[in-house]
C-alpha cells in the first residue's frame, strides 16, 4: 500500500485550499449552514474530490439533525468511493438515529464485488492502465525486432494484468454511474396502486429505496423490505 500512495502522490496536484479550509473552519465553529454552502461552492470548483465533499456535507447535515438528508449525501459519497470505513460507520449512526436497522441487507449491496471494484481509486487506475499498456506496447515492439528469452511469458502476464485493470476500471465506472436510488426524506404513505389509493403502508424516513417506475409526480419504489409502493416524488431525495 505504501507504494500505491507514493504512486498517488505523483499524480495529485496541489491546488489552492482556501475554500475547503474555510468550510472546515465553519464546520469546526459549528456554523453548519455556512459550511454546507461553502462545500457546495467547492463542488463547482475544478479538481474537487467528490467523495470527500459529499462526506463533509453529510456530516454537516448530521450535525443539523437532518439525518435523511445527511444519509442522501453519505450515499453519494459511498458511490464515489466504496471503501470508506468512516463513511460506512456514519451511515449506520445516522440510520440508528432514525431508528432504522443498521444491519439491513440492502444497505451495502454487492459488498465484496464493490470492495474489489473500488480497490484502486479511479484516477490512479487510469494512470496504471496507461503506464502498463505503454510498457506492453514497448515490450511487444522490442520483442518484434529482437529476441530475448522468457520475454513472451512476461508479455503475457503483463497483458493479463492490463486486462484486469481495465476490468476494474469499467466495474468501478459502472458502480459510480449506478442511478435510480433515493432516500425517503420524510415519513410517507406508500400505496400499492399507481392511483395512490387502495392498500397503503407507511414508509420510514431515511429508508434507501430503489426507484422502479415513474408516472408524473409519483414514483414506484422498492423499499428495504423488498415490497413495491407508489409514493409522491417530493418525499425522497434522489441520490
Amino acid at each position: 500500500m505504501k507504494n500505491l500512495s507514493l504512486f498517488i502522490m505523483l499524480f495529485i496536484g496541489f491546488g489552492v485550499y482556501s475554500q475547503s479550509e474555510e468550510a472546515l473552519k465553519a464546520y469546526n465553529a459549528q456554523n453548519y449552514e455556512e459550511a454546507i454552502s461553502l462545500w457546495n461552492k467547492e463542488l463547482a470548483s475544478p479538481n474537487r474530490s467528490l467523495e470527500q465533499v459529499f462526506f463533509q456535507i453529510g456530516n454537516a447535515y448530521f450535525k443539523l439533525q437532518d439525518y435523511s438528508k445527511s444519509l442522501a449525501f453519505y450515499e453519494k459519497s459511498l458511490r464515489e468511493d466504496y471503501n470508506q470505513t468512516d463513511l460506512k460507520f456514519n451511515i449506520k449512526v445516522a440510520r440508528a438515529k432514525l431508528s432504522l436497522d443498521t444491519e439491513n441487507k440492502t444497505l451495502f449491496t454487492h459488498d465484496w464485488i464493490k470492495k474489489i471494484a473500488y480497490l484502486i481509486p479511479l484516477n490512479l487506475l487510469k494512470w496504471m492502465v496507461i503506464v502498463f499498456s505503454l510498457i506492453l506496447f514497448i515490450l511487444s515492439a522490442v520483442h518484434y525486432f529482437k529476441e530475448i528469452q522468457y520475454f513472451a511469458l512476461f508479455k503475457n502476464y503483463a497483458l493479463i494484468f492490463v486486462f484486469f485493470l481495465i476490468g476494474l476500471f469499467f466495474l468501478q465506472n459502472y458502480f459510480k454511474s449506478e442511478k435510480g436510488f433515493a432516500i425517503i426524506s420524510k415519513q410517507t404513505t406508500g400505496f400499492e396502486n399507481a392511483s395512490m389509493k387502495g392498500k397503503s403502508k407507511p414508509i420510514h424516513e431515511g429508508e434507501k429505496v430503489e426507484i422502479v417506475d415513474e408516472i408524473g409526480n409519483t414514483a414506484q419504489v422498492k423499499t428495504e423490505a423488498d415490497t413495491k409502493y407508489w409514493i409522491e416524488k417530493s418525499n425522497f431525495y434522489i441520490i
Binding site: 495529485i12 485550499y17 474530490s49 492502465v129 499498456s133
Partner: peptide
Amino acid sequence: IKESAPYAKSNTLSNSLFYGLGILPLILA
C-alpha cells in the same frame, strides 16, 4: 460520527486522455 481527515483535492484525468494514452498503446501492442 467520524469526521474525516483534512481535505485534499484530487486531479482527475479526463476520459478522452485516458482512452488515448491507455487504450491506444494496447491496441498497437
